[in-house]
Simulated scan of single mutants.
Amino acid sequence: MAPDDLHVFSQLSTATVTQRITIPFAGAFGVVKHRLEKIFESVEPSTDEESGLPALKVHGRVTLKQESEKHISLQWSSDPISDMVSDSIVALVLNISREVPKIVVEEEDAVKSEEQNGKKVEKVIYALLVSLFGDVKLGENGKLVITVDGNVAQLDKESGAVESEHGGLKERVRLAFERIRSAVKPIPLTAS
């Protein structure tokens, strides 16, 4: 018997059970959308009419809303397929929540290691310049002051620009710095 015919041929009536669950999630709602699109064929973005918050409709059955910065809610009419879809969405969101701290820690470690590498590179550049020219000191604005036989050259570590009244020293410092920098920071393989 069809559910619509139930009340016609019996004294029973049909009912729809709407289920709702709230899940803790502090990440970006776009990450959830991206992951859902990789798994499900139909993920339609929308906006919740009541609150104006971003929402997604998965397979036309389960509505996913970003309730706050720390919560996502799911709502669906209960049936075997909708229940299965909602279970997989809950698992996906909880899995993303578990991955987010790892991603943040890895990014922080990458930033720290890059800063450490930058300091090491500066030390190597400084040591090589000292071995070539002898008297190398840190001057104003982060420039290195190189003195050879009374002649002074100022080297900008960022741009590689050299200022000096002595043309020969200026060219030697510029060429040496260029070679040192290319040895210490070679061209990356994934250059675009």
Rank of each mutant, 00 (worst) to 15 (best):
D4N: 05
L6S: 03
V8D: 05
V8Q: 10
F9D: 01
F9S: 00
L12C: 06
L12K: 09
S13M: 06
T14R: 03
T14Q: 05
A15K: 04
Q19W: 02
T22W: 02
I23M: 06
A26L: 07
A28L: 08
F29V: 04
F29Y: 08
F29M: 05
V31Q: 13
V32H: 10
K33D: 14
K33P: 00
R35P: 07
L36W: 10
E37T: 11
I39Q: 11
E41V: 00
S42K: 12
V43G: 05
P45Y: 01
P45D: 00
P45W: 00
S46H: 05
S46T: 13
S51Y: 12
G52N: 06
L53C: 15
L53Q: 15
A55N: 07
A55S: 15
L56C: 01
L56I: 03
K57F: 09
V58F: 01
H59Q: 14
G60Y: 05
V62D: 09
V62H: 02
T63N: 03
L64S: 05
Q66G: 02
E67K: 03
E69K: 08
H71Q: 13
S73T: 01
L74S: 06
Q75M: 12
Q75W: 00
S77E: 05
M84A: 11
D87Y: 07
V90S: 02
A91V: 10
L92F: 06
L94H: 08
I96C: 04
R98G: 14
E99D: 09
V100F: 10
P101F: 04
K102S: 06
K102E: 05
I103M: 10
E106C: 15
E107N: 11
A110R: 13
V111N: 01
S113L: 03
S113Y: 06
S113H: 01
E114C: 00
E114F: 02
E115S: 04
Q116K: 13
Q116L: 06
N117E: 12
N117R: 09
G118P: 00
K120A: 14
V121A: 14
V121T: 11
E122V: 13
E122N: 15
E122M: 15
K123P: 10
K123E: 11
V124F: 02
Y126G: 11
Y126E: 15
A127N: 14
L132F: 13
F133D: 14
G134K: 04
D135Y: 12
D135K: 14
V136N: 12
K137Y: 11
L138F: 13
G139C: 09
G139S: 08
E140H: 04
N141C: 03
N141F: 07
V148T: 13
V148N: 04
D149Y: 02
D149S: 15
D149M: 09
N151I: 11
A153F: 06
A153P: 03
Q154F: 06
L155N: 13
D156Y: 03
D156P: 04
K157T: 08
G160I: 01
E163S: 14
H166F: 15
H166R: 15
G167C: 07
K170V: 09
K170S: 12
K170N: 09
E171D: 15
R174V: 00
L175G: 08
A176S: 13
I180H: 14
I180D: 12
S182M: 01
A183Q: 06
V184T: 07
I187Q: 01
I187W: 04
P188H: 09
L189G: 07
L189A: 06
T190Y: 02
T190A: 10
T190C: 01
A191D: 10
S192W: 00
S192I: 03
